[in-house]
Structure formats: structure tokens, C-alpha cells
Design a protein around this nucleic acid. Structure first.
Lengths: 236, 236
DNA sequence: AATATTAAACGTCAAACTAACGATTAATAT
DNA sequence: ATATTAATCGTTAGTTTGACGTTTAATATT
């Protein structure tokens, strides 16, 4: 009794939908695929799962390979298993989304992967079912961020209110009343105001804030409602 | 170029967390595993994914095998891939939850699988990581049902308000004020009152209702809030 | 020195929603 | 006649929502 008999075995990959924010727009990190089929076409960063790796391990490895970053926020989205999704050989893929601060991404432009940041709307056509994976990831991040404070993962440790509001506005492609936004934010108690200001983006400068880690963890699972009328915005 | 070289291939299974409701309690359908390892231990119903099957196909097949039902509500939850989760051979598993009306489950007691309904709290210890899978499925169903009207899938076509309220109370292990519940329900416009009554559960009898299918579909993705203070109840 | 620009700190207000609870009527098995 | 469950009407205080008004602060630009 060492193996299951008469069963087929398949390749298993992970693919990462890597979201980044630069203070203004939400972006997507894509690579030019390095091998056949579809060599040099735009693709999600992915990789086959190795024999000793868990799915989470594989996703983290793939992400670190591309970005040099560790400890990034990573969450499993969904498994894809259409028999024909990869024309060469049947391959299952488990998708993850990653949230990173673009300014942390300083990968050497040795650039084994020819990675590039794209605005969500300007993203090129992707190989296989990667386009559908990205659409799904966008829905997921919107859904989750309407209820949980995950978007902070896209910001540096110190961030300003205008940055945060830009982020929410970009994710939901909407405009938010600044006074209501601040009121809702402060009511969460999640933010700690710092004495310093960011003067790069405006004349007056905007105060930096940081997350109250304890409250962040405590409130993470709570149902919040950061976004007015998310039901009108979300369609998946 | 017919295959990817130098990569390992693995078994892939689907496992179904089958929830059922009998008008009083939410239950879980488990089977006695029919083969080694862990033969005759309680387990989720699952099966290996075949070479021509998508994941959804495989989950539907497995569900039909066990229950004889087709067209059941089935939703992918998550992929599990710990290298040691199956001691015989590395096997990935993609979990699905199914929602069915227990009274529809009339599988012949030929009972190839020795299936049995368990109250959620009375469920036995399960093989491998199936216990964790069930816990996760419980969180998922609570989360989803707080925002989307999925629990109707657990009821017969004709159901009564008391049945529906029992269901919500059982899923969230809470008690709900009947007057507020009805008000919230009717405000969704999802229910159509039928002239008949169910007299099996009470002396007065309770009117049957059916779903307004069109409104059901239209409202399915909306963020609702069926449950007071779900943030106090949900912890995953 | 005046101006333009952005940040942010107050506030107002009507409408909607929430949760908790009161009272009453209806149907029927016992 | 009584007990039980279903269902329909409330009420009410408190909170949340979204829309919008006003004012002050800081500073780079002119």
C-alpha cells in the first residue's frame, strides 16, 4: 500500500495576481512568459508546485522570485481545472492575489522575467485563462475590501489620508466624499496620526498615519462597510 | 513539444462538504470511506479528478454518485495541498460545499457509501484534514449567507417562514426576533405567499411561500444583511 | 505680499435602518 | 376552554448614511 492505483496524475501550478499601488493607481504586475508555449506573451507570474511544497509555499516562492519581497499579503482565490486550459498538458492552477506597495518593488532590472506594472484598464491580453483569473481577482479584492481593511497592505507603513482615499477611489472606480471618508475612518480607530507630514504631494502637506496593529488584527474579521453602496458597484 | 519536462505530477481530488436542512437543523452528510487508508472511518464524500473532467464536473459527479441529485447548488471553497495531508500519496484536494434539502435525499439504502446525516455539533472525527475543511466550509456558508440569499437552496420549493427562520437561527446559532425577521424578509421582495398551509409543524399551520426566481437572481449579488451583527458571530 | 492649492477639522440634516419590544388576532389540536 | 404557534399590526430610541456647508491651516508659486 504505497500508492493509489489506476488514477491519473497532473501538473499543478500556482498563479499570482499581484496588485500594487503607487499612491495614485492600482496596478497589476505582469511578466513576459519565458518558455513555450506562448513564450514572450504577457502572463501572470506562476510556477509549478514542487513535491515538497504546499500551495501557500509555492505561491510565496513565486512571489519572492519575482519581487524579492517576503512576508507579502497573499490569499488564495480559486482553483482552475479546465481540461484544456493549457494546450501542452493538462495543468491545474491555484490562484493567489498579492497586495504590495509598489515602491517596495525594487527588483533588479536584471529582470529575468521582464516584469512590468500595468494600470488595470491598460493591461494587455494574457495567455490561457489568465485574463479570467485577473477579472476574478478584481472582484475578489473589491468584495473583500468592502468588508475588511486589506487595502492597507498596499500602502507603506506611513501613509496619508489622501493616499488612502485615492486607493479606495481607484479600487472602486468611484469618488468618495472626503469628509464622510474621514469620519468613517476615524470611527474605526484603526489609524494613528504621526507628527510628520508628507510634503511631496501638496503644498500644505498631509500628515502621515500608521495602522494600529492591534486594532487592525482585532477588527480584521469584522464586517465593515468602507464603501457606500457596494452593491451597486460589485457585480460578481 | 508535447509535455512539460522535469515536473512532478500529482493526484487531484475534490471533496464535498454537503450541508442539508430538515426543517429544524443544519446537517452534514458524511460517508464511511470505502478503501484504504482509513477504511471505514468517517470522511467527506470525494473522488479523484479524471483526465477529461473539470473540477466543477468532478464535484458534481461525486455529489450525484452519493445523493442521486442533479443541479444541486455547489460552490468551490478552497484548494488544499499540504504535502502530507494524505499519508499514502501526495494528493491535492479542492473543496466544494453543497446545499441540499434533506428531504430530497432519498438515496437507496443499498448504500454503497454508508452515508449518514450528522448534526453539525455531533459530527464525528474525520480523516486527514477533512475536519479543517468542514470548519472552513461552516465559516464560508455563514459569511456568504449573511450577504447573499443562498440558504434558500437548503429548503424545498415550498417552505414556511418558521422553517426559514429556524434555518437562519441554526446557521448562526442565534435567536432572531420574529417580527424583525419578517419585516426584513418582506422588504427583500424575494418571497411569494402561496394559498396553502403547512399544518405538520403547528396547530394553526404556516403559510407556504416560494421564491420569486427573478428577484432572487437579480438580488443574489447584492450585499444584504440578513443577520443582525454578523461581525459578532463570524470569526474566520 | 498676494494667491492658489491642498489638507483637514469642525458641523448640519433628513432619511433610512436597527434592534428591542408591545399588543392583538387567527387557527386548531388537545 | 385552553394552550400553542403563526402572523400582523404597531412603537421607539439610537445609529448610520450620504450629501453638503464652512472655516482654518500650511506653503509653494507668482
Amino acid at each position: 500500500m504505497t500508492k493509489y492505483t489506476n488514477q491519473d496524475r497532473f501538473l499543478i501550478a500556482v498563479d499570482c495576481i499581484i496588485f500594487g499601488f503607487d499612491g495614485e493607481h492600482l496596478k497589476l504586475l505582469l511578466i513576459k512568459r519565458g518558455f513555450e508555449p506562448e513564450k514572450d506573451k504577457w502572463s501572470l507570474m506562476g510556477g509549478f508546485v514542487g513535491p515538497q511544497e504546499s500551495l501557500d509555499n509555492a505561491a510565496n516562492r513565486v512571489l519572492t522570485q519575482l519581487t524579492g519581497l517576503e512576508g507579502v499579503y497573499l490569499e488564495q482565490i480559486q482553483a482552475y481545472g479546465d481540461p484544456l486550459r493549457d494546450p501542452i498538458e493538462r495543468t491545474f492552477s491555484v490562484t493567489y492575489f498579492a497586495l504590495i506597495d509598489i515602491n517596495k518593488y525594487k527588483m533588479q532590472i536584471t529582470d529575468q522575467y521582464h516584469a512590468e506594472w500595468f494600470l488595470l484598464k491598460d493591461a494587455p491580453k494574457l495567455i490561457f485563462d489568465h485574463g479570467a483569473m485577473v477579472e476574478n481577482a478584481k472582484k475578489k479584492i473589491r468584495y473583500k475590501a468592502a468588508l475588511h481593511p486589506i487595502l492597507f497592505e498596499l500602502l507603506p507603513k506611513k501613509f496619508t489620508i489622501p493616499q488612502l482615499q485615492n486607493l479606495y477611489e481607484d479600487v472602486y472606480n468611484t469618488s468618495i466624499d472626503n469628509r464622510n471618508f474621514i469620519r468613517k475612518l476615524t470611527s474605526t480607530g484603526l489609524l494613528i496620526k504621526l507628527p510628520e507630514k508628507d510634503k511631496s504631494a501638496s503644498k500644505k502637506g498631509a500628515f502621515y498615519f500608521k495602522l494600529d496593529k492591534k486594532k487592525y488584527v482585532a477588527n480584521f474579521q469584522a464586517f465593515l462597510n468602507f464603501i457606500p453602496n457596494p452593491d451597486k458597484l460589485i457585480s460578481g
